[in-house]
Nucleic acid binder design. Structure first.
Length: 194
DNA sequence: TACGTGATCACG
DNA sequence: GTGATCACGTAA
């Protein structure tokens, strides 16, 4: 079952980032379904320097200001598309970066997109998982209750004891906000990026 | 550890 | 217009 907009339209982005662990991200590209369980996330909020929206709205980050429940996809380092889930209310620019998945469906589609034969860690990293899932900038701003990309409730719920909190990756420019323990992953899951 | 890669951003 | 920057991945 797809997560409803009410799941995303809440204020505590760090809590939402933790609740997304164990949920299943699904994409449908050219009729091909791919799906993976979310095993690693990072929370971003406009009140801290790590967030793209810290200095207000720009052409790149404008979808972050929409009401929660849409995707935010942007190009990083000129090569990688990164996929985020926008949360919170209208004009509250919070988002959760999805950093790693454990494939659960459509593995053949993922391997084909990655041009590899083995499944080995092809979704263990924010840039790799978008490529494997077929997510690019055309997904920017898509509502997550539609038929192109969505997130489903999975069978298992990840308890607090199975969640590891750590510093977010690659945001040294954020000063003391880089120290926030806003990266969350499922303990001992082999698909986590690092 | 080093660097490719190109859109984006804050300047003029 | 222009130059610096960057929520990564791979090779070494």
């Amino acid at each position: 079952m797809k997560l409803p907009l009410s799941f995303y339209q809440r204020q505590n982005v760090s809590k939402i980032a933790q609740e997304l662990l164990g949920k299943v991200l699904v994409s449908k590209v050219n009729g091909k379904i791919s799906a993976g369980m979310i095993v690693e996330t990072e929370a971003y909020s406009s009140v801290e320097k790590g967030c793209h929206a810290f200095n207000g709205m720009t052409e790149r980050n404008k979808v972050m200001f929409k009401a929660g429940g849409v995707s935010y996809v942007y190009l990083c380092y000129g090569i990688h598309h990164l996929f985020n889930v926008v949360t919170n209310d209208l004009n509250q620019a919070d988002a959760v970066l999805v950093r790693a998945l454990q494939p659960v469906q459509g593995m053949e589609n993922m391997k084909a997109r990655m041009k590899v034969d083995a499944l080995n860690r092809i979704t263990s990293g924010p840039g790799k998982l978008t490529k494997a899932m077929g997510i690019d900038k055309s997904f920017n701003g898509k509502v997550l209750t539609g038929n192109e990309i969505w997130i489903e409730e999975a069978g298992e719920k990840i308890g607090t004891k199975r969640i590891v909190a750590s510093k977010r990756i690659g945001i040294d420019y954020a000063g003391k906000d880089a120290l926030l323990l806003w990266r969350f992953s499922i303990k001992n899951n082999e698909w986590v990026s690092i």
